[in-house]
Nucleic acid binder design. Structure first.
Lengths: 166, 166
DNA sequence: GTGCGGCTGTTACAGTGTATCACCTCGAAT
DNA sequence: ATTCGAGGTGATACACTGTAACAGCCGCAC
């Protein structure tokens, strides 16, 4: 089950930076990867934000007070983090969000992008997966990766709007 | 039925520029839209190429010999063409392909991007559509648009590789 | 003609991402 | 301890992608 649409409350996915941080620690030590200061800070920044962040936004947040983090360094950290499933890139927004699930690897994800509040929810859908698999098989296409991003209005925003009009 | 994977033959989707051109003519006259020289040339360029083209590639192809087409003009033409379903934007590639189907509007499309030959096939999948609709309904998400792009190896390239190894 | 709207040309600029090289650090090998 | 190599970071420069703003053009309605 995934939690959706709670864009301000504490049960919101993005409001739990600890989860992904702890997961990152574990994952990196398991795989003998370096969870360096920069990588940690980039992940923290992305996790702390409720909304998708651009690489330059991240660089800006990490710079300041005698320190300058160039965008290129952020990109390298993001490459590392996406490679290991700790953050995801949203192609339609050129932005990055923390991974909300445990999956790490690249099972099929669905991103729900709300145009009102900007929150991006992440979920999986076996039904879509099945349908897509059959479709690709018919086409003789062997998939290696895919992106599925839906833009629209999340339940919270729809409910809120309904509330104000009633 | 859609044709897939014929990346070199005459039955390849991208090898029929006339289709989409004729469709564009018809569509524009029906809707009282201006199918101007630039828009036609941009569409021709995209249709003539078997592969996805970037806006700057298009500008380059149209420039030359005493004429300079700026990228910004190409973008405007592409905006028009995508708006009316004559070309599609591939978010994961920042590139554009001609529309292969009659649909014009934004039914759910699936783009199959071959990493070997670079050809992008376009198809639809009611199964995926159904599954996605149910998933979104469960999440309380009202969709307005979506992108679904699959990268992998197309049938033609897979078959070709098998042929050489046998 | 005059005005209006839509299209194009042009320049400038913002945003996104990569290439390259130098330096640093840390651990392994000798 | 020294050397060496690999991976990470800093820094600069640059390529690619996309948009803003303004001016000129053209066709059409009045």
């Amino acid at each position: 089950m995934h939690e959706h649409a709670a864009h301000a409350g504490d049960d919101c996915r993005a409001a739990r930076p600890g989860d992904v941080l702890a997961r990152a620690e574990r994952l990196c030590s398991e795989r003998h990867l370096q969870f360096t200061r920069l990588r940690r800070e980039v992940l923290e920044t992305v996790a702390a934000e409720g909304r998708p962040l651009g690489a330059y936004d991240i660089a800006e947040r990490l710079s300041g007070a005698g320190r300058r983090v160039a965008a290129v360094s952020v990109y390298r950290a993001l490459d590392f983090l996406t490679e290991h499933g700790l953050v995801h890139r949203i192609a339609s927004r050129n932005a990055f969000v923390p991974c909300a699930h445990e999956h790490a690897a690249r099972e099929g994800l669905v991103f729900l992008i709300c145009r009102s509040c900007g929150i991006i929810d992440e979920t999986t859908s076996p039904e879509v997966e099945d349908g897509l698999e059959r479709t690709l098989a018919r086409a003789g296409f062997r998939p290696e990766s895919r992106i599925l991003e839906v833009e629209g209005e999340c339940g919270a925003c729809a409910g809120q709007k309904a509330g104000t009009t009633v």
